[in-house]
Amino acid sequence: MLLYIVLLWCFVTTKDLMAQLTAVGPSQQPMAAARFWRWLGVIPFFLFAIAFIFWPSANLFLGAFRTSDGAFTVEHLVELGQPFILEAYWLSIRISFVTALGGGIFGFLLAYAAILGGLPRFVRTALMTFSGVASNFAGVPLAFAFIATLGRVGLITVLLRDLFGFQLYQYGFNLYGFWGLSITYMYFQFPLMVLIIAPALDGLRREWREAAENLGANSWQYWRYVALPILLPTLLGAMILLFGNAFGAYATAYGLTGGSLNLVPLLIGQQVRGDVLHNPGLGYALALGMVVVMTITLIGYTWLQRRSSRWLRQAN
């Protein structure tokens, strides 16, 4: 997949370059050199990108198709079909989906309340600042914070027990399991949603609402037929981004579970540490699978983004 992107990029670049060079007529021969130098300006950046993004990734993915002696194989991809790996993907996808949906909806409601809910202006400013902080407060410290809140002796766990006699952990809740992880992830998911969706809410023009009212629509009809359809691509796109954000999260999961939960990023981490599988090819295949999922999400996001920006292009 990635290799494909690299090749495409090389192809397009060289094609452009060739076009640039061949477009130079005989009378402009000295210009050709200048045009070549022009391209030199961006070479360091792209060399860096190749050295530290594309080549290592390509290297990894080639590994997914190689036996230990370098012959071509699809065995590693087949091995992805093992139940515990499928379970890992399934758990990762479920957690990402739940936190994208939950974080997306909650973040949207918050942003809506702060921007269009008729609240004082400072609420909005405060929300944006908090979101900037919280969306970057992830990883090990976040795990610590939730252990102190919802762990076995966490504040809320103890509070529920002492005040209501409610034993959280006896009802199947476990901070180190599906719901615990989801609640923790939500802490960086919903602020990200707020940051993404706020400009879109700002972009809802007052005139649309007024035009709708003027034509006899009530509030609900305005939302149903105008505002929601306009926001929908951005909403979905943002949720897709949240999905990817959770899918690739390693540090938070590791900090919370010590690497023991059967999640794809944790499995890959184990591979890197050389702990468990002793089958590097499988590790590469796992990574490849992960990138495939992420690429799909990004393509979905870009597509939706295009769609909404196309609509709004002329909205001056």
Partner: peptide, 16 residues
Amino acid sequence: FVIPAVVLVFGLIRTY
């Protein structure tokens, strides 16, 4: 956004 940190570091290690 496409290549999560775990995958990136995996590739870097394999390469370097």
